[in-house]
Nucleic acid binder design. Structure first.
Lengths: 121, 121
DNA sequence: CCGTATCCTATATGATACTG
DNA sequence: CAGTATCATATAGGATACGG
């Protein structure tokens, strides 16, 4: 399965996902996990720099508050996309990484990026 | 470029997208276009059935109100993902389709679907 | 049939202060 | 450094009614 797939083949594959049954649809599930203003950017930063500390993550994502960063990370962690490692040091030291499940989102991002470079000036 | 790409290759490609410059980043642009509770489902329905009439679209997307459907379609149209054809008949008859730009999102959906089937039970 | 107009509510997000 | 707690606000979304 490669880039030579036709639209019809893509559509046929995608069609297997039954969005009407909201609870069971993988697309819906993923989108729910990635809902919110900051989730994609967090995943993106983790793609680029992994592991990354809380502070650096916050500096990388312009405009995010510690409140929102914490809340978003907690949800991503709960959903299994991100893992958190706490070092018991003073001052505190926490590192965030993508799980395997999270890393497997890279092809999704890759397709988005390809699309973007084609259409966004 | 096919499915044999490694994570490192994916990451390297994705890295070319500079999210920090929110205005110019293709990922950010696309995500902005697809923001909202219903946009993905609308695109999805259009992947499956194209063209589709307003009423049938509304029946296909469980729970959406005419208000939200109209608002979402207007934005998708404005952003160039969806086209609207109005037939001057009585009773009114309007058909919505994906533009080329919209159809090119299929690989993105395909990757999401693959991811979903791997991880969502 | 395909919407628009209006109003209302829920949720997400932001601001600020404080702490182990 | 890496958060939590609290309160305020903005925005998205929902309900309802009505019109060409």
């Amino acid at each position: 399965m490669n880039m030579d797939m036709t639209y019809e083949q893509y559509a046929s594959e995608v069609k297997n996902c039954i969005l009407t049954d909201a609870g069971a649809c993988p697309v819906t599930s993923l989108l729910t996990m990635l809902q919110g203003k900051w989730k994609f950017q967090i995943i993106y930063e983790l793609c680029i720099k992994d592991p990354i500390r809380f502070g650096e993550l916050q500096r990388s994502i312009k405009g995010i508050t510690n409140t929102m960063l914490t809340a978003s990370l907690r949800e991503l962690e709960r959903d299994g996309l991100v893992s958190r490692i706490q070092f018991n040091e003073i001052p505190p030291h926490v590192e965030y990484s993508l799980t395997d499940m999270g890393r497997d989102l890279l092809p999704v991002f890759y397709e988005i990026t390809k699309w973007g470079f084609k259409y966004i000036p």
